[in-house]
């Protein structure tokens, strides 16, 4: 039985994706401002109100999904790909290669991700591509560990032994016999990584290091900070959007985990 919360999470994510794709059809131009600055919510033309430059907060929040989803999904995929590659290589090769790759993994796991991302973006300048690269590079260690553990166990499993005896080369063996068996945990981790990446991106935006040419939820909260006293709505709506989206990805990740790993039930 699928819990109702999973349906809600799935529903919200579907809405988010639709919003990202069809934002121009639903909302006005999020970059176009006007004389009507700092209008409160439920104003006739702007039902979530306007910001300090008279831009429509509903439009900005809707268009903000684009940056969040792009960053979240691409970095999660990048993290999964790097993590699987490193983990599979370490688990399959064993020995010195394994030790070296695991030290590298440990190094990346130890690094304080957010602070490192902040400093890197500050040094190299803001931009969506840079944000994706930095978060993506930092997103793989956990996947690598999980994959390595599974691959190391599976390496000596009977069906793998059989294929090996049958003359299958190493890479093909990993791809066809072993990876399908680690797909489930990798997907679960990727879903959780999307959530983490969205939070990281929002934090970067809040520090003023988001892409200056795109609206993003973090950047909206950055601008809202100095208007907290005069225009609470500037802070409330983008925050709700972040929280709900992250919550949905987390919930989905947990549900996937529960469905694929019976031991994890109830935790």
């Amino acid at each position: 039985m699928i819990p109702i919360s999973v349906f809600i999470a799935g529903g919200w994510l579907t809405l988010t994706v639709l919003a990202a794709v069809f934002a121009p059809l639903v909302a006005m131009d999020p970059y176009a401002g006007g004389p009507d600055a700092l209008l409160p919510p439920l104003s006739p033309a702007h039902w979530l109100g306007t910001d300090d430059l008279g831009r429509d907060i509903f439009a900005e929040t809707l268009f903000g999904t684009r940056v969040s989803l792009t960053v979240g999904v691409t970095t999660a995929i990048a993290g999964a790909v790097i993590g699987v590659a490193v983990g599979a290589a370490a688990g399959w090769l064993g020995g010195v290669a394994d030790a070296a790759l695991m030290r590298l993994t440990e190094l990346f796991q130890t690094l304080p991700r957010f602070v490192l991302a902040l400093v890197t973006i500050a040094l190299f300048g803001p931009g969506l591509a840079k944000v994706i690269v930095v978060i993506g590079i930092l997103a793989w260690p956990q996947t690598a560990r999980v994959v390595r553990a599974s691959v190391a166990t599976l390496r000596s499993a009977p069906f793998v032994e059989a294929a090996r005896v049958g003359g299958m080369p190493g890479i093909a063996l990993v791809l066809s016999e072993i990876l399908p068996n680690v797909a489930a945990p990798v997907i679960v981790l990727a879903a959780l990584d999307v959530a983490t990446a969205i939070l990281l991106e929002a934090g970067l935006g809040f520090f003023g290091l988001g892409d200056p040419n795109l609206v993003s939820w973090g950047a909206m909260l950055n601008e809202a900070q100095q208007y907290l006293r005069t225009a609470w709505w500037m802070a409330v709506f983008p925050g709700i959007a972040i929280a709900a989206t992250v919550l949905a990805f987390n919930r989905l990740g947990d549900a996937l985990n529960a469905a694929t790993d019976p031991r994890g039930r109830g935790r």
Binding site: Y31, A32, G33, D52, L53, P126, G208, P212, Q226
Partner: peptide, 16 residues
């Protein structure tokens, strides 16, 4: 200059 909020807001309006 990225560090100056007035210039940041001015740039947004100029772009618009």
């Amino acid at each position: 200059d990225a560090a100056r909020p007035q210039l940041r807001a001015t740039a947004q309006i100029v772009r618009d």
